[in-house]
């Protein structure tokens, strides 16, 4: 979401996040990840319901939202939804490149630029290993190996990497031109490749 924030900020749009958590939880979340945007408390999932994205099949007694995004613009009276994305589950995120594309289209940009970072395989496995508790290599019982939190992170990281590959394919096959490929650096470490795509949209 941090990448989303800075891209949107550059386009003059404020990012606001909300979930069914208490203000205390959200404050901890913001401090822990040093988030530059506000996280609001949708207690009871009422906002998720109003926007039609409540997760109906939630096994636990929580009213949570499917992953969704709404671009809301000021209108004469109140506000209007200018663009929306409603994921099929609470975990299907929208690729940052797709969000960037949609927002640039909304803003009427004739020349559009988006980029996709495809993490290298070792980077993905490294991040997954970092999520392991206890760390990889320590003795684990079969019950611990099946502990849900670890599995979710592992699958999630692989999903993000697959999504990045999918985005490169989608952009290549839908009229975007590959303008540049550059190594993505974190300090002096190459953690993947950044693919930059451009397209010119006929405004007529």
């Amino acid at each position: 979401m941090r990448q989303h924030y800075w891209e949107l900020r550059g386009l003059g749009i404020d990012l606001i996040a909300a979930a069914n958590d208490t203000p205390e939880t959200n404050r901890d979340l913001r401090e822990r990840y040093d988030l530059p945007f506000s996280v609001l408390s949708d207690e009871n999932g009422d906002v998720a319901e109003a926007y039609g994205v409540l997760h109906e099949n939630e096994p636990r007694d929580r009213r949570i939202a499917r992953v969704s995004m709404f671009l809301i613009e000021p209108a004469d009276k109140g506000a209007t939804i200018a663009w929306e994305y409603a994921g099929p589950t609470s975990r299907h995120r929208l690729a940052p490149s797709r969000l960037s594309q949609e927002v640039q289209t909304y803003l009427g940009f004739a020349h559009q630029t988006v980029s996709v970072v495809v993490p290298s395989a070792w980077r993905v496995e490294n991040v997954i290993a970092g999520f392991q508790d206890p760390p990889l290599g320590l003795y684990r019982t079969p019950e611990e190996i099946n502990e849900p939190g670890v599995m979710v992170y592992r699958d999630y990281m692989r999903e993000l990497a697959m999504q990045a590959h999918g985005e490169v394919f989608r952009l290549q096959s839908s009229g975007w031109t590959l303008a540049a490929v550059s190594p993505e650096m974190e300090g002096e470490i190459n953690v993947g490749q950044r693919y930059v795509f451009t397209r010119d949209v006929d405004a007529g």
Binding site: M1, H4, A19, T25, D42, I72, S90
Partner: peptide, 11 residues
């Protein structure tokens, strides 16, 4: 304009 992002939360 704002982008409202609804997500599952930290349960």
């Amino acid at each position: 304009p704002i982008l409202l992002h609804l997500y599952r939360g930290a349960w």
